[in-house]
Structures are given as C-alpha cells and as structure tokens.
Simulated assay, not measured.
Amino acid sequence: MSPRLFSHSPDLKQLRDEGYFMQIRGNCLVMREVPYVDSQRQVRTGSLISSLALAGDITCPPDTHVVHFDGSFPCQADGTPIQGISHQTGDFTLGDGVTAKHSFSSKPADGYSDYHQKMTTYANIISGPAKVLKPDVSPRVFREPEIEDNSIFNYMETASGRVGISALTERLASEKVAIVGLGGTGSYVLDFVAKTPVREIRLFDDDTFLQHNAFRAPSAASIEELRDAPKKVDYFKSVYSKMHRGIAAHAVRLDASNVHFLTGISFAFICMDSGGAKRTIIEKLETLGVAFVDVGLGLELVNGSLGGILRVTASTPQKRDHVHKGRISFSGGGADDLYSSNIQVADLNALNAVLAIIKWKKIRGFYRDLENEHHSTYTTDGNMLLNEDCK
C-alpha cells in the first residue's frame, strides 16, 4: 500500500510522528510492539489491530470502536485480567497474514473521532500496567517505517475487512484471469472480477464499443466516448483501470493463430458465441490444465414477452467429460439452438455473469459448494435454477 495514506491522513501521520510502530496490512491498521502484562506478571508485547474506513486515500472516522489484539489477554500489574475491555476470544484470521486472539471493546460516549484517538486509547489501557512493572517500556518505540507492498488496487479494498472475509478474498489473489468476449455478459464478468485482488485480468475482444453496447454494459458511457468508437477492450480497460492495476487489453478475436495468448492464465471466462473458435479456445485451456466457465444466454420473443434460459458450464481438470457431451455448443447456432438468439437485456446479462462469478469462487473455495455442480441453467419462466453434472 502506498505511504500516501499516512501522509494524507493527519491521524495516521500523527501516530507515526509520535513514535508508534504503525503498519497497514490489507484492510488492517496495525500497531506493533504494544507492551502489556500477562497472567504471570511478565511484560510482553502484542499488536493492536483495527479495521480501516477510508475515502480514497484519506481516513474517515472509525466505523467501529472494537479492536483486535494479537497476544495473550492483557492484565493488571497484579496479573488479573483487564476485564473492562473484554469482548471476544478466539482464533481470528483478518487477512494478509494478520491474526489475533482477542477483540476488545471500549467505547467513548461520542465514539472515536479518528484513528489516533482510537489506537492510543487502547494502547494506554493495555500498556499502563506494564509501565508499573517496567517504567521504561512504552508503545512509542520509534521504529523506521517499513516499505509497504504495492496493492493490485489503486486504493485500498476495505469491503472484505469490514465483514471479516479478507482471508477468503486472498484465495483469489494469485489468479490470472482471462475474459474472452466483452459483450453484455462478459462486461459484467469484468465488473465483478475487477473488484477482486486477482493479479492479472486479460481481456480479449476485437469488436468496437458502440451505442447498443452501452445499454447492456455496466457503468455509463458518455456521448464523447461513443463518438470515439473505441475497441471494447480499450474502453473497458480505461474504466476499470481506475480501480485495478492488472488489466491487459488484447483487441483480437482468439483463434488458432493467437490462442497462445492464454498461456500463463489460471482461470478463464468464455463469454462468446459458439463456433470453431470456441472449440479451439477450450482445447487450449484443457491442454494448459486451466479451469474455466462458459456462459450462454438465449431468449425468444413469443406472444409479446421474452422467455429463455441462462447457462453456466464449468470445466475443471477434475471434470471435463460433460463439456464434450453437448453441454457447450460448438455449432455456431441454428434454428434449434436457443443460445444462438441475439436478444439480450442488461439484467439477464448481469445475472448470467453473477452465476459465472459465483461458480468461479466456489471452485476456488470462497463459497461453500455442497453439490459441486459443473452445469447449471436458469429458466426465466418459473424462476427455475437447475444444477447438473455434479462431481
């Protein structure tokens, strides 16, 4: 994370200037080497940990008065626990290698105005008894700030830490994801992937972003952007690079001549029409041992209303046989192929993308997966979701 957060936030800067050993780990503000007394009346050091509420690269007032603590439960100088701050005890995994054994609660009447007030309040409560036994100890240790790792994001992702799922989110951090096709569904897939910490997002599409695309894609294109008629990959990279640093745009249609562009990825979303090119892409992914999700959306206008089916088909190294038994069409359409219909609306494109993203996260262990289905369909009429090809 950039050190700008400390220079732009007066409360964080004050903490460092006063000698507190402060670090940022993911969505956590960590105060290291806080002295405390354990139950054996020994002076030890632990770490105070708070979630961070941010507006860009500037802190907001803390969103909770609770902190976590990595160490044994702090005690008074006589070895009795400081029960006034007791909240919870357990094994807390807070993400980015940050763990804790306890959480504490000490809430002022008006809450904490900033992180300097919050962190120093807890540091004083915990370290006070230690100073009784060893007057020279202090949480103000004046350590040199560490060089902090660069994030894949241009600003901190704080949503995961607020709800305690940072460790789960980290399961996606090593991913290199390809999105093949940036039409209605593929663009929504990008919207969701770009909000995860994957290391790389490769975009593949040779089409131009035109007016009809703007009405079934996330965000809102300006009239000036539409007049420029950019390539889809360039337009979407410009939008999502505001958040995510790892986006690479390839304005090509993947086929046998360039399918090597997929080498090095760890997962793929295939959001393109059926045909020979899709078969080539899938064969390449299977050769590379890469898991993927293929999506399909087919709607028909009958008797004045739309009806149809959304499809999500997953393929992993552990299960691929169903792909070549008709679950994915390579025919390129036809009168009997529902998915060849080009009727698309943004809400169903988004839903198809959501189902694909959920399946990806299931495969990576982010979501619980009891059935381990590799093929699912959603039918608009009847609101019916079916799972098949379970492993």
Rank of each mutant, 00 (worst) to 15 (best):
G71C: 07
P61V: 10
R311Y: 02
S331P: 02
L310P: 01
A217S: 15
L301H: 15
E300F: 10
A220Q: 12
F366W: 01
H8W: 07
C75S: 02
V180E: 02
S241N: 14
A130P: 02
G308P: 02
F153Y: 14
I265F: 10
S222Y: 01
N352A: 13
I270F: 02
Y378G: 03
S7G: 05
L168E: 05
L12T: 01
V293S: 06
S315D: 08
D110R: 11
V259A: 12
A100N: 00
S113P: 03
D110Q: 11
F215R: 10
T59R: 00
R202I: 07
F215V: 09
L190E: 04
F269H: 14
V141W: 00
T196W: 01
D78F: 12
L297S: 03
A100D: 00
K391W: 13
E388D: 15
Y367P: 00
P108I: 04
K232D: 08
V66I: 15
H8Q: 14
K195I: 04
S9H: 02
A194G: 06
N383H: 13
L203H: 04
K319E: 09
F330R: 08
S329E: 08
R16A: 14
E286W: 04
I282R: 04
S341Y: 00
K131L: 05
N342L: 14
D96S: 12
T64F: 03
A77D: 09
V98H: 01
A251H: 11
G84T: 08
T64D: 09
S9D: 03
R327G: 05
G296T: 05
A220C: 08
P74T: 00
T99V: 13
S2D: 15
P81C: 03
H8K: 15
I201W: 06
D389Y: 12
A256P: 05
N258Y: 10
D91Q: 13
G289S: 08
K362G: 04
V193K: 01
S305M: 13
K325S: 13
V141L: 08
P317S: 09
L182G: 00
T196V: 09
D381C: 10
V132W: 02
A109P: 04
S138A: 04
G326S: 12
S127P: 00
K361D: 00
P317G: 09
S151W: 03
H244Q: 09
S174M: 11
I270E: 04
N352D: 10
E157S: 12
G382W: 11
K101D: 07
F192V: 06
G308Q: 01
T377L: 06
G365I: 01
E148W: 08
Q344C: 06
L210D: 15
Y36W: 02
M1T: 14
I282Q: 09
D294Y: 05
L133R: 01
V302Y: 11
L226A: 03
M156Y: 09
K107G: 03
D336W: 13
C60N: 15
T45V: 14
R202N: 15
H212Q: 10
E148I: 15
D149S: 15
F366D: 01
G164L: 00
R143D: 09
Q42H: 12
F153C: 07
R364S: 10
I165K: 03
L351G: 03
L48A: 02
A221S: 07
D11W: 01
A314E: 05
E33A: 12
V67H: 03
M22S: 05
Q23T: 13
